[in-house]
């Protein structure tokens, strides 16, 4: 039995903000219409979590549930819990039309932290960071790849695809270089 490893072995970079690769993080894609009653029930029963509003990410203990599209949620949870939760969610959804699948290994997760963390993302994503609302999950691109991020205590979390983890780390490190702060102290 081998241990699962994250894409970059938790690499990190110290610049004017701190960049860390996290994981392995458990992630589940759940596709179902959000107005499906079984969905709300399944989330409550299996994860003790509420259905997030449009473009929001909600937390329940160690679990995060993010709104990805009108019929898609991304669930973040401890890696060890994934298999059991996929099974439980599938069971709870019963015969309703839904798709629940483990995507933990298809993604990578980064933390961008520090008072100037937003300046790192301002260089990479066509997003008005100042207008990012608390609990907002923003899907967009960073430079040339798809990503999603949201604010958390001390900075931001960013999810991207696993195959481009090294590219994303390169982008974040380049953008956090000391001396390249966007605004005066």
């Amino acid at each position: 039995m081998s241990e699962a490893v994250s894409a970059l072995g938790n690499a990190s970079f110290e610049g004017f903000a701190t960049v860390r690769e996290l994981g392995p993080m458990g992630m589940i894609t759940l596709r179902a219409r959000h107005d499906l009653p079984a969905l709300t029930k399944a989330l409550q029963k299996v994860l003790k979590a509420e259905l997030p509003e449009r473009r929001r990410i909600v937390s329940a203990g160690e679990v995060r549930v993010g709104w990805m599209s009108p019929d898609e949620l991304l669930i973040l949870l401890p890696h060890a819990d994934v298999t059991a939760r996929v099974a439980a969610l599938t069971k709870a959804l019963g015969t309703a039309h839904a798709l629940v699948t483990d995507v933990s290994d298809a993604r990578c997760l980064f933390a961008i932290e520090g008072e100037r963390a937003a300046e790192v993302l301002m260089k990479l994503a066509p997003v008005d960071l100042a207008a990012l609302e608390p609990g907002e999950l923003r899907r967009t691109r960073v430079a040339q790849v798809a990503a999603a991020f949201w604010a958390e205590e001390g900075g931001f979390r960013l999810v991207a695809f696993r195959s481009v983890a090294a590219y994303v780390m390169g982008l974040l490190a380049h953008s956090a270089q000391p001396g390249s702060e966007l605004f005066p102290a």
């Binding site: 596709r31 019929d71 798709l99 699948t101 483990d102 995507v103 290994d105 298809a106 695809f161 696993r162």
Partner: peptide
């Protein structure tokens, strides 16, 4: 529903 699992495996 579709899900692109290319990188999962």
């Amino acid at each position: 529903y579709t899900a692109n699992l290319t990188e999962q495996f």
